[in-house]
Nucleic acid binder design. Structure first.
Lengths: 223, 223
DNA sequence: ATTATAAATGAGTCGTAATCATTTTTATGC
DNA sequence: GCATAAAAATGATTACGACTCATTTATAAT
């Protein structure tokens, strides 16, 4: 019976998590009532606190599960044998679509980061999620499809930062998924291909020159 | 006396706003106590509610003021006569630096967006703020320094999305401002130049360099 | 001075997260 | 099966903090 007992407990925990996910999505974190979550999970209010220490920990569990599922979905969305660019395209599409579909939970995520006291942490499951991107990008670098002269974290911030902002824009405008966002992002990523060096054996790089000039201009306008 | 009266009221409102800004930054929205804000503003708790209907409205006012100040600062940080690239560089630097310096308030901003009920709004003052970017970019397009074939909003999302994510990365790693983030972003923006796509994949463009040099020479002979 | 109006106060109300003494359910030993 | 212990669940109660409002204090008007 130890087995069915355990299953019952897990089912209850699942019910609470599911109820919490719904209520948080519907009413937002502040609008969500613990009593309402308990009611929908069909347990007494006190029972919730046997599974989660407090409202914030419940919120964290909801967000945690969401990103864990998202990681699974992302991995499933990527064609194993495909090229690096193709995989990036697939990941970007999957990510944008998910952000739009589950906009409410994504918004709530920032809430889970802020732990009352101080330093906004990095959630473990999000760290796990971005590894999917890192793995693809690393393969691209290993295969020399992408150059190694930009730190991966910076490229990653372009990738996720752009998609997150685009998703917000689209949702606020009541538009849905827009493939042009993906195309645009992929075109940007052409920049990371090493081809430009081959074309330019002298090592002369216009962007570097322009940057140097910008620095000089900055200095000048400051003085 | 009507004048000094009004000044007193404004001073009180300012004191409350300032106290709220501090307390929200220190303790986060949930950690902030209205009693503490009142204490620091040197007013009774009830007085706060004469100026702001509730905690959330006070939060909105804090965030609103922050972005209004940021807009002022951004405009001040941009050299009027400079090239479009130069201005973008300045805006990006200013923005990244500000996000890092006032990370706490930036985090809190997302909280002000969420109005209990439902649809996450766009805050008016942020809309105002991004106009600074739009104006620069529009000038770039008008001057044919940038091509018009990508919607400005998409470019804007790359710009702010990347900087926001980068700022988070830097803060979480306890690193400060990193110029390479800006350089990287500016290099990406080379993609939006009309010349770079067709005839010059490396981005080398003698005329642009000569234009920049002319501007520098002009500046130098002025001083 | 007197009165009217506006502003400020803080003790008290009210809603909700969290607790905990009590009850119910489940597992174990004979 | 029954007795007993342990685990799980309950919901009335508590604690706490946002917000209110009857009262007091300050300011302006005549």
């Amino acid at each position: 019976m130890a087995d069915t007992q355990r299953q019952r407990l897990e089912a209850r925990e699942d019910a609470i998590l599911a109820a919490a996910t719904t209520v948080f999505s519907e009413s937002g974190v502040d609008g969500a009532r613990m009593a309402e979550i308990a009611r929908r999970a069909d347990v007494a209010e006190g029972t919730v606190y046997l599974y989660y220490k407090n409202k914030h920990e419940l919120l964290e569990a909801v967000v945690d599960r969401f990103w864990r599922e998202l990681t699974k979905g992302a991995i499933a969305a990527i064609s194993e044998g495909a090229s690096v660019s193709q995989q990036l395209h697939e990941l970007a599409s999957y990510h944008l679509q998910s952000l739009i579909d589950d906009f409410k939970i994504v918004e709530i995520t920032s809430r889970a980061r802020m732990r009352h006291g101080e330093p906004g942490r990095q959630l473990p499951q999000i760290r796990e999620y971005v590894r999917v991107f890192d793995a693809i990008m690393q393969r691209g670098i290993d295969l020399r499809e992408f150059s190694a002269d930009t730190a991966i974290w910076q490229i990653r911030d372009v990738f996720y930062g752009t998609l997150e902002h685009s998703a917000r824009t689209l949702v606020l405008r009541d538009q849905g998924f827009d493939p042009s966002v993906i195309d645009h992002l992929m075109r940007l990523f052409e920049q990371y291909r090493p081809s430009s060096q081959a074309d330019n054996p002298s090592g002369l790089d216009a962007s570097e020159i322009m940057q140097a000039l910008s620095r000089i201009e900055t200095k000048l306008s400051q003085s």
